[in-house]
Write a protein that binds this DNA or RNA. Structure first.
Lengths: 68, 68
DNA sequence: TATTTTTGTAAAATATACTTGACATATCGG
DNA sequence: CCGATATGTCAAGTATATTTTACAAAAATA
């Protein structure tokens, strides 16, 4: 899986650490880290929570036009 | 969780049965059924596969403006 | 009506998302 | 340089997404 650099950028744009974002959305820091590193697929519920915390939508952070 | 009627409508708009959509995206029929019924949260990867099969994007089928 | 297709549902098993705790490294401000 | 904060990673455990098999009922179609 590919790294999620859009998420990393959006988080940085809000001046949030992985830890802080994790607390905002109610998951562990390791989970945020793994998602940014592309190590596993989050559930849609978690994706929505992340998007709300960062003021974005699903298409902004989790949509990829070209994928397998 | 709420039923996903947008998914149900998009699937109907492509004249696909739950079974056919399931085959297109590579999951079981019960998984599609459970998602439409709102019984569990799919992974983002599966959501993307469903969107591609139906010619939509994540925001079309899996974004909700107002949620808890 | 009879037949077929589609949908709903349930229980047991498997795969994997996510947690917890812990440690190492990097970075940045004092 | 030193302490604090941020990130990367690993291993073991828990929660839950997904599969498989199976059966019943609804809906479409002949």
């Amino acid at each position: 899986m590919a790294k999620n650099l859009k998420l990393k950028a959006a988080r940085a744009g809000h001046d949030l650490s992985q830890q802080e974002l994790a607390e905002l959305v109610g998951v562990s820091r390791q989970t945020i880290n793994a998602i940014e590193k592309g190590e596993y697929n989050p559930t849609i519920k978690l994706c929505r929570a992340i998007c709300r915390a960062l003021g974005t939508t699903l298409n902004d952070l989790f949509w990829e036009e070209n994928e397998e």
